[in-house]
Structures are given as structure tokens and as C-alpha cells.
Design a protein around this nucleic acid. Sequence first.
DNA 1: TGTTAGCACTCCAATTTGACGAGTGCTAAC
DNA 2: GTTAGCACTCGTCAAATTGGAGTGCTAACA
Lengths: 357, 357
Amino acid sequence: MELDDRKVKILKAIIKNYLETGEPVGSRTISKYADLKLSSATIRNEMADLEEMGYIVQPHTSAGRIPTDKGYRFYVDDMMLQKENDLVNREQLVADREKELKSMRDFLSQKVDRVEELLQSVAKALAKDTNYATMVSAPQVRGNKLKFVQLSQLETNEILAVIVMEGNVIRNKVITVSEELSQENLLKLNILLNTSLTGLSLQEMNLSIVSKMEIQAGEHMQLVKEVVDAVVETISSEDNLKIYTSGATNIFKYPELSDSSKASELIYALEEKQSLTDFVKLEEDEEQPNSGIQVYIGNEAPVESMKDCSVVTATYELQDGMRGTIGIIGPKRMDYDKVVEKLKTIQTQLDDVFKKT
Amino acid sequence: MELDDRKVKILKAIIKNYLETGEPVGSRTISKYADLKLSSATIRNEMADLEEMGYIVQPHTSAGRIPTDKGYRFYVDDMMLQKENDLVNREQLVADREKELKSMRDFLSQKVDRVEELLQSVAKALAKDTNYATMVSAPQVRGNKLKFVQLSQLETNEILAVIVMEGNVIRNKVITVSEELSQENLLKLNILLNTSLTGLSLQEMNLSIVSKMEIQAGEHMQLVKEVVDAVVETISSEDNLKIYTSGATNIFKYPELSDSSKASELIYALEEKQSLTDFVKLEEDEEQPNSGIQVYIGNEAPVESMKDCSVVTATYELQDGMRGTIGIIGPKRMDYDKVVEKLKTIQTQLDDVFKKT
DNA sequence: TGTTAGCACTCCAATTTGACGAGTGCTAAC
DNA sequence: GTTAGCACTCGTCAAATTGGAGTGCTAACA
């Protein structure tokens, strides 16, 4: 059977209606749509076809139809294609977005110096704006270059290492050392570290460079080892992958998600954050097809507990290919159109903020 | 009417039973208790009295009784008194706790150098252990003394200030300055800042000291102003009050809290965190009566959305009166005894970890 | 051949009903 | 002061009832 023009129209009408109401939609409802003058009986026949083709199902025999994941997928793909091609639309959107951009910019520029807070506010604002749950991952440091290291003495056997990466990503690390260290030697060590490591990415801090440093350090070999280890560990540390979430309780606004066991699992995933890293990883591998926007419907998501949700993600770029991910988690019947637009706005905005920094 | 010995026994039996089952408890259930040989009819009479006195209520006419907030309050106060006085019990507990302390110590000592992670793990472990929701506030920096400041150049017009407080509380701040700065001047500024401000608490960085510094800075007066402002702002910044939460989804384990609107409000409070600061503030004012452990039952809590919960909080000390708060949020019928013990354990443990650092 | 009106049928959701049981309050007797 | 007994209340559960929304199918029509 073929998905002819009329079937497409009906399918879209069904999904659109379902997105709005959340109720199964019957043939009579669709037959009232102005632009296709068909009786409910005809619609019913078409619906039967669409069901056979797997785009819609009935929750039970005498109920209206609701979209399947395949149906949603068709709808979303079509929408994305529309956005890609429709140039007139695009210009309109740019104009529309300009307003948001402005207010957003004012809002963001106030807190540029604290990336953590910035991303948390983005998550929060987006959640409030969309009424869905949100996640924002901090940009991945991997592959980024070291700007400088600064060692200072805290106590006789404690050293504070301040590590600054390109893009002003800053990490602090307290290192407990086994031997005491004079001011003079600390200075030397500082110089040694900076001349040897500055401008290198994690990958480039390989064995030969490190062993060379250790030789230069002479009697403080052991200490250098400890510090370099700490630096490497700090930069590469898996849990650098911070994820900020917000609006978890928004899911209670959607009855199909608020039953206690589903809600519990979902909120757990958002609180625990571990599983959310899967989305970030997926984004990293991705070849950026739709300006970096991805839609996961139901089981397409890499997270088990989100099988009843849809997730829309976007990537933003810091610089040098450092990327972060923004995600919106909502019911399958989320307002994809609006969500995609919001994400595009934030994306542009974040790119902007970070490039300026 | 007076709360005589027998009434107390019956009341305690009712509450204890209700804590275990979560079901309204009837007169027959209590009459089976071995240590008070009374028929259900007698119990019924006593129950009627207890109800009149406001310790228990019936959810509906022909149901068993459940404790009121007043009832819980009596139960908890009695328990705390017991713990205070019962020395034998206490020794037993110390022995019991020793085991936990050991495993806990191993666990904590691994991540001492990252306070943030440490506190987050405490929240997590405690939530897993108790099956309630938990919160842990970072120790308040207010009143703490500055150890040193370190300025480094990031870009021509950007300076990184690393601010270290007593207790190795570290803050980073990127300051955008209006004038360019030579290496030499940066060094001078560093010295000026440290000689003037080191060892001072926020309260002591008053106007006279700052203006004195500004004079010394000569032509860089404007810059000093900016830096000092940044330092002060960073130290005093209200949002230094970080709160870590965990186990929010544990509330779904208790039917009386899992109805969607209650759960939503509760989880929102835990996610938003703003309202949780009220507990921290209350603790600060508190004169530490029961080794710093407080129990809030229902409306006693300063947070509206927790009117159906109980909250148990404890304070831990870092040093110099820097205090943080640990809280456990659960249903009114939580296992107060266990929770108080757990909190005491963690309290000791954290005191320990921080004092050692 | 495609479209439509009509009708019997299905099934859910909401409401009603009745039986059951847990628990109470009261009274009278011990 | 305590207890046994009894009538009464009320919530819970399951079964029965009803109404309505929506379907599939058939026959007639253009």
C-alpha cells in the first residue's frame, strides 16, 4: 500500500490533533477539518489503512487512533524537512527569533564568568519556557589545550594547583605531597610545568614529554610525577562531564507520564544524571545533519526509562570543537515545532556568548 | 485530663505500630500487646481520651487511629530524651556505630579534596541508606578568613582571581578589567592584596582598609577597586550557599506522599533548593540543644510543601564556627530512631574529615 | 470505482449497588 | 475500673448497569 497525498494529510491531521489534546482522535473529528472534505466514513477507511501500515493504533477497539512511534517519526522528519527547505519561513523565523535573542542576550551576558551558573540558568529558563524537563551538559574539555598551570602552597605538604584551559575552563585541585617544598623550588616547578605543558592537549601530554620533565626535575622527580598525574587526572576526569537539569517536575503536567512508577524512573534518571551522558556521547559522534538537532522518539532514546518520552537534543559549540549538549525531555506528544525553535535560539545564543568570551 | 502512664504506653504503642505498617491502628491490635493486659474495649476508652487530647485522630468514623502532629511530637521528644539519658544504650550505640564509622571513613577519605563531590556523595549515600530524600548544605563561608588571593593574567583585559579561604574553600573568579596591566604591576597588585587582606574575614574588610589599599595602589586605584569588589562579592555571594540533594525519588516509596500533586511539590522543592535554605538558616540560629539535631514534623517545617513530611536535620562543623546542615526528608511515619542515629554517625564523621583536612 | 449514510456492535468510563469487614461507641454486667 | 456484647458507621471491593464515543461493515449512490 502506498502513502498517498490524502493519507499523509489525514495522518498529519491526526497527529497534530493528538499533540494538542492528548486524547485519541476519532474519524468524526478529522472529517471536520476544512481542507479535506470527506465524511467520517471515508476517513475511517483511510484510518484502517494507516493502522495497517503501522502509523497509528487504537488503544482499544472502540476508541480513536493515536500515533505510533513510526507515526511520530514520520511527522518529525517531515517537519524537519519543511524547516530545511522553506526559505520564506526561515526568514520569518530569523525575525521572530531576533526578539528572543535580545532578551536572552541581556540575561546571559550577566553571568558569563561562571560557566556553571550560566548553564544552570539556561536549563532553568528553558524548562520554564517550554514546560518540559531539560538537561544541559557542560562543554567537553577533551582535546582542549592547557593555557597555564599555577601552583601555590597551602600548607607545608599541600599544594593548590589551578589549571586553566583554553576557553577559560578552570579547575582547582589540592595535591597532598610527600615531601616539603621551598618557595624557590615551587617557583621552579611552576616554570617547568608551564614551559613543558602549556599549549598541549591531553592527548599530547604523552609519556615522552612527561619523562623528559621528570628528568629535568632532578631530585623532585617524585613530586613532578604527582603533580602531572593530578593535572592529567583533573583534565581527563570522567566526571568533568557535568550535566545540569531543571524542570523535572514538569513531567507531572502530562498525565501519560505522571503515573507514579514512570515519573519515579524518569525523575531518577534526571537526578542521577549518569544515564543522560549517553545523549551527550551520541551527539559527539553525530555528523550534525540538521544543524545538530536530534529527535529521539520513545525507544530511540538510549535511556530505558525514557521509552514513553521524546527527547530533542541540540549541540552548541564553544570553540576548537568543544561541544556541549542541550536536551529537552517531554511526552511523545510534545510540541516538536516549538521545541526545535527554542533549541535553535539557545544554540545560536550560546555559540555567541562563548565565542565572545 | 492527664496523660497518665497507661495512656503513654498506649499512645506509644499506637504510634510505633503505625510507623511500621502505615495503616490506621485499631483497639484490637493494641490489646494484643503483651505488656499491657487490657481488652480492646478498655483500649477503646483510652483511645477516645487520647483523641480528645489531640494526640491521635480517626481518618473516618469507623477506622483505627493515626497519630496527629502533636502525637508524633510527643513520640519524638520522648525518644530524644531517652537517648540523652540512657547511658547504657549510648555505649551500645557507640559500639554499633563504630562499624559504620569505619566503612564510612574509608569511603569519605578518598575524596576529601573535592568538597563538592564529598558532600554530594554524603547526600547520595545517606539517601540510599535510609530510603528517604536527603539534603546537605555546604559549610557557610561567612565569617571565615581569607588565606590568600592569587591573580593571574588570562588575556590582556582578563584576570583570573583564585581566592582561598581557611579550610581550603576555593573560589575562582574571572575579572574583566578596563585597563591593561603589565606583569610587573600584576605582581605588585598581588602583593598589595595579600598583605592587606590575608587573615581578614569578610566583616573585617571594611571601608578604611579598602580605601587605604586604593591609595597605595596609586594610579591603579580603579583596578584595585574592581578586584576587591570581585573578591568581596565572591566571598559574600549569597549563592555560595550550595545545597546538594539526593534520593528525591525515594518519596515514591511512601504512598501517602506519592500522589502526583504532593510528589510534584516536594520534588520541586528539592530540585529548586531555594526553599531548603530556610532549614540551614534555622540551624544557624539554633543553640544546639540535642547535639544539633532537630526534628520538624509537618507544619513545623518552614517549607509549605513539606507539610505532609517530617524533616530531621543535623549540623556539622568545619572549623571556626563554619557550619553546614544535613537534612533527611521523609514521611511523618519515618523511622526517627534510625534516622537520628544515621545523622549522628555522619555528623561525627564529617566533623572528623574536615578537622583532619 | 470511490464516497457516503446508516446501523449493529464493541468497549471504556463512570456510576450504582450490595456485601463485607474492620472498628467504633455505648450499655450493662462483673 | 474493666469487660463482654451489640448495634451502628463507614470505607473498600467487586459486580452490575448505563451512556457514549467510535468503529467496521454493508448497501446505495454518483
